[in-house]
Amino acid sequence: MKPVNFDFARPSDLPAAIALASREDAIVKFIAGGQSLGPMLNLRLVQPNLLVDITGIAELKRVEETPDALELGSCITHADIEDGRVPDVTGGAMRAVAAGIAYRAVRNRGTIGGSLAHADPSADWLSALAALGAQAIVRGAHKERQIPVDTLMTGVFECSLESGELLSGVEIPRLSKSARWGYYKHCRKTGELAHAIAAFLHDPDRSVCRAVIGATGSKPIVLSDASVLIGKGPDHALDRAAIERAMTGHGMTDPIEQQIHFVCLRRAVQQAYRP
């Protein structure tokens, strides 16, 4: 369980990193915290010629707060968020999600950008940031573009980054004071990658009511207008049949999978509306 022989570079600016990644003659992988890539290298699931360590790039640790949003560089760690070393525009939602990722040792090194780019369906940020309406900021050799996190993932361990592109940061919209947030994940043991995730955001002032069902084995299921699925009564009952139809539509047909994911969503919604 040793990686293949590879070259290693640690550039100090973004253009240099992107230039290295644009080499056509080599398989190049970016590494930040290495909490997923490290084991994959050891298992030889990934056999790069060149590993580009991006943690020496100051721009990727940027924190920029505006009235409407927070932009975090992709090398901000889960622990940075958990510990409040970066500002929070989500009323504590992101800090709570960060605190529940894997184990502290992983959170110390693992990064928000790495987690998104790795596109593990069971990881937290993909679902949580999709529900929060975040945008992934992607830098290529010639341009920068934004991809909504809820469409970033294209398949298991695949996302819509193109060759030579680097996910350089995340823009998270500032929630209004009245926003309600719920997040519930199902793991068999502490620190394990989730078997089901549900994230729910109701921000009436911004006309957002979004639910995300994650850890589906593939892309998260985004219910961009969840209000139609939630009863108006005080118990906020969910339209189970409609939600199960959505799951079936996304290829999740196993009744036990559906049950667990549905219950997680119901608990996330209940959490959001808890007085």
């Binding site: 084991p39 298992l43 043991k189 502490t190 620190g191 394990e192 990658l193």
Partner: peptide, 12 residues
């Protein structure tokens, strides 16, 4: 891997 073969940890 131990991601698939689950061992109980301290919290379990």
């Amino acid at each position: 891997t131990f991601a698939d073969y689950l061992l109980p940890g301290a919290t379990e």
